[in-house]
C-alpha cells in the first residue's frame, strides 16, 4: 500500500517536473489576482490591511480551481486512470496520493509566495505568520475537496465551469476560518479559535474526501 501511495505521488511530481508551465500557471494567477487589488482599491495601508486576509484566500481558492481541472483529466484521457484504478489497492489510496501530490505542487509554493504578497498589503509580521499557518492548514482542504470536484466532473463537457460551481461553495468554511484567522490577529483577538476550526475542517476533509473521490472515480470510468 505504501509503495502504491508513494508511486502515485512520485509519478505526479515527476510529471509536474516535466511540464513546469502547467502548474506554474496557477501560481502566477494567484500572484496576479492578489496584485490587482492594491492597484484597484488604492494604496491606503489601513484599507489594504483590512481586506488582505480575504483577498489572499479568495485568490488561493480561484488559483486552486485552475489547477484542479487537470488533476484527473489528463490521466483519464490517456487511459492511465483506468490502470491506476485496476491496481490492487483501493481507489481511496489513489485519491489520497493524488491530493497529496497536488498539495505539494500547488499548496506548498503558495505558502512561500504568500508572505511576500502579505507585505504588499502592509500586513504586520504576526499577521503574516498567521496567514502562512492558516494557508498551511487550509490549502490541503483545497486539494482534498478539489479532488472530489475533479473526479465528479471527469469526462463532462464544460467540466471546468461545473467544477467551479460545485466546489466553491464547499470551500466556504476554509475561506471563513482562514481569512478570519488573519483578521483576528489584526483585531488583537488572536487566531487560535479560527485555526482550530480550520484544522477540524481539514481533518474532516482528510477522512471523507479521498473516500468520496475514489467512489466518484469508479463511477466516472464505468
Amino acid at each position: 500500500m505504501w509503495r502504491f501511495l508513494l508511486t502515485v505521488i512520485r509519478r505526479d511530481l515527476l510529471l509536474a517536473a516535466r511540464r513546469k508551465g502547467d502548474w506554474l500557471t496557477s501560481q502566477f494567477f494567484f500572484v496576479m489576482v492578489v496584485s490587482m487589488f492594491p492597484l484597484g482599491i488604492g494604496a491606503d495601508p489601513e484599507q489594504l490591511r483590512r481586506v488582505a486576509g480575504g483577498v489572499l484566500w479568495v485568490a488561493a481558492l480561484l488559483a486552486s480551481l485552475l489547477s484542479l481541472q487537470r488533476l484527473y483529466a489528463d490521466d483519464h484521457r490517456d487511459g492511465s486512470l483506468e490502470q491506476m484504478l485496476l491496481s490492487p489497492q483501493p481507489a481511496l489510496i489513489l485519491a489520497l496520493g493524488k491530493a497529496i501530490a497536488h498539495w505539494l505542487i500547488f499548496g506548498l509554493p503558495l505558502l512561500v509566495i504568500a508572505p511576500l504578497l502579505g507585505l504588499q498589503f502592509a500586513l504586520p509580521p504576526d499577521a503574516i505568520g498567521t496567514l502562512v499557518i492558516a494557508l498551511a492548514i487550509g490549502t490541503p482542504v483545497l486539494s482534498l475537496l478539489g479532488g472530489v470536484g475533479a473526479a465528479l466532473t471527469l469526462g463532462l463537457r464544460g467540466g471546468g465551469t461545473l467544477l467551479t460551481l460545485l466546489i466553491l461553495p464547499l470551500y466556504v468554511p476554509a475561506l471563513i476560518f482562514g481569512a478570519g484567522a488573519v483578521d483576528g490577529v489584526l483585531a488583537g483577538l488572536g487566531a487560535e479559535a479560527q485555526l482550530s476550526l480550520l484544522g477540524a475542517f481539514m481533518g474532516l476533509c482528510l477522512l471523507l474526501a479521498p473516500w468520496v473521490t475514489g467512489a466518484a472515480l469508479r463511477v466516472s470510468v464505468d
Partner: peptide, 16 residues
Amino acid sequence: QQSMVYLAHANGVKDD
C-alpha cells in the same frame, strides 16, 4: 487485480 492486467484501447502511457 493482483493476478490480472488489462490492456485497454488507450495505452495508459504517459507522454512526458
